[in-house]
């Protein structure tokens, strides 16, 4: 073999070997276990912090409100729909009271007039016309909307 080809081949082999060597050290351990990705990343994704606790957790203390809600039209709605957890209030809602928003705009999020809501028969009203000077909760109990106060 001519010297020139031999030298080049040698350089080429050295380069490839170096590449393969580096590769062995750099690839993360769990890479390729299930597929072309780092298998441990599945656990990373599982380990993210959890904010919304789920209804069951709320019922542990607030069975009374749950019962009240269950009897009326808002029965389907989960607690945290209206009482979202404050960031980091991950374990105890006594320490960090779940957020409560103002009322008219808050009710309007679901109930303001909208053709799309009308189309599926969802109760939607012209808030300005309906409320008069009052706040929604002056007449409606948000947990049981049809238990009207005077």
């Amino acid at each position: 073999m001519p010297k020139i080809i031999f030298r080049l081949l040698l350089s080429f082999i050295a380069f490839v070997t170096l590449f393969v060597l580096i590769r062995q050290f750099v690839i993360p351990d769990s890479f390729g276990k299930y597929g072309h990705y780092r298998a441990n990343s599945i656990d990373d994704n599982k380990a993210r912090p959890l904010f919304y606790k789920g209804e069951k957790k709320c019922i542990e203390c607030h069975q009374d409100i749950y019962d009240l809600q269950s009897a009326d039209v808002h029965s389907e709605i989960s607690c945290e729909t209206c009482h979202p957890p404050i960031i980091n209030a991950t374990s105890d809602c006594k320490l960090n009271i779940p957020e409560l928003k103002g009322t008219i705009e808050f009710c309007a999020q679901c109930h303001t007039k909208n053709a799309a809501r009308e189309a599926i028969g969802f109760p939607n009203i012209d808030i300005e016309e309906h409320k008069g000077n009052k706040n929604c909760i002056e007449c409606h109990n948000p947990h049981a909307p049809w238990e009207l106060t005077e």
């Binding site: 994704n45 599982k46 380990a47 993210r48 912090p49 959890l50 904010f51 919304y52 789920g54 209804e55 808002h74 389907e76 709605i77 989960s78 945290e80 729909t81 979202p84 679901c110 969802f122």
Partner: peptide
């Protein structure tokens, strides 16, 4: 993924008022 792997529903499903 962190919720469903613990048996909870995704947050959007949890809060959807109309299912």
């Amino acid at each position: 993924y962190h919720r469903i792997s613990k048996g909870l529903e995704p947050a959007c499903v949890e809060v959807c008022p109309t299912d």
